[in-house]
Write a protein that binds this DNA or RNA. Structure first.
Lengths: 207, 207
DNA sequence: AATTCCGGAGAACAGTTGTTAACTGCATGG
DNA sequence: CCATGCAGTTAACAACTGTTCTCCGGAATT
């Protein structure tokens, strides 16, 4: 299917990647709304004008980063939620999986957490849209569970959003946790919060 | 106690207020890390250098805004959580109270939601600290409830954080809800989420 | 082999930024 | 009433920003 694309387009995608990576790195200690176009090109080592060959503005670059960052989250969420029961062991494994994802893609997690409510409207909207898609997928996954018998679509979606938000909060806490002791505290609290939600789920009045 | 402070200090606090208010207004469509000192002074109508008489930097101003914004949230949280039972009517009233608060102080809510994970470290830390204080207060309030019999301190704090985070998420959703229809959807979902948490709380295994 | 296409470079633009220094005028405390 | 303190002003600084236009060299197309 995918042809070995020409030298030309290969180079273009290479600098595009460099721009995205440099931006993501720069966003570790600032918000997207203060990220300058020149700042990014300087970090990559290309002329400022080269930026326009790839993105209309930094906001546009931000939207591209959303796709990328939430793309990496995608399989993680799926793995976290899927599977029949939600026993204590499964919850513990889910929390650990979140922790591993934060270790693997800290910049992605930081970007999403920061820009979800950030100062750039198109980016906010893109994140909201993607998270809504995620919630919808989680809902579908939850629907397969035997616990979901008698649940309305709205209730399932409500629970899915609760899970997604909770996952994001936990990921953000992992991100800020510096030493191992604090990490353990986060793990512990997140685990118990999920357990409480799970309890509420089991006792939810079905139609 | 509080003397009628002199004309001098009164004027100073007046421009300080003006700076804070102007900054808060400007932060409606950008993040703190991109807020310029000159931008703020221009909006107020004073010379750029006057800024330094009040704040060391925009980050410093941000920290001051944290105290203010979370100060307004303080009584709201207290009212939301306090009271013995958490019946359906009480939950509904709590959600409505959140909605009213967002209507009353939209800029405050936006600021906290945005800068909680924002690009300015001192501000992030200030918010984290204040929210931890809130959670601790909520914990104390929860401890008074008869439902809290047999709950450990850690479990109560875990639940308190869950409530605080949930409240912030709901507030942020209200903020972005434009028409009345969407507002109703947010109200509905937040209500059911709190109801589910409440169910989990009732069935939490006590020691 | 000749021509078109196009990612990137270079230079220049008007406008902005944070920060400094030295000042002015007025309320304050002796 | 006079001297000090201090909020706010003015002017200037080097550095930075996004954006435009023109150009170059090499891959792609014919």
């Amino acid at each position: 299917m995918s042809h070995t694309l020409g030298v030309r387009q290969a180079q273009k995608q290479k600098t595009r990647r460099a721009l995205l990576d440099a931006a993501l790195a720069l966003l570790e200690e600032q918000s997207l709304s203060s990220l300058g176009l020149r700042e990014v090109t300087r970090a990559v080592g290309v002329a400022p004008t080269a930026f326009y060959r790839h993105f209309r503005s930094t906001a546009d670059l931000g939207v591209a980063l959303v796709e990328e960052a939430l793309g990496s989250l995608h399989p993680m969420i799926r793995t976290t939620v899927s599977g029949a029961d939600d026993s204590d062991e499964r919850i513990a494994r889910a929390v650990e999986l979140i922790g591993r994802h934060v270790d693997a893609y800290p910049a992605h997690v930081r970007f999403i957490a920061r820009e979800r409510h950030g100062g750039v409207q198109p980016v906010r909207e893109a994140i909201r849209e993607q998270l809504a898609r995620f919630a919808s997928e989680v809902k579908d996954e939850l629907a397969k569970d035997r616990l979901a018998a008698g649940w309305s679509e709205d209730d399932l979606l409500m629970l899915a959003h609760l899970y997604v938000d909770q996952m994001l909060i936990t990921a953000s806490l992992f991100l800020e946790a510096s030493d191992a002791r604090e990490r353990a505290r986060v793990t512990d609290m997140a685990t118990r919060q999920l357990r409480l939600i799970s309890l509420g789920r089991k006792h939810w009045p079905t139609a």
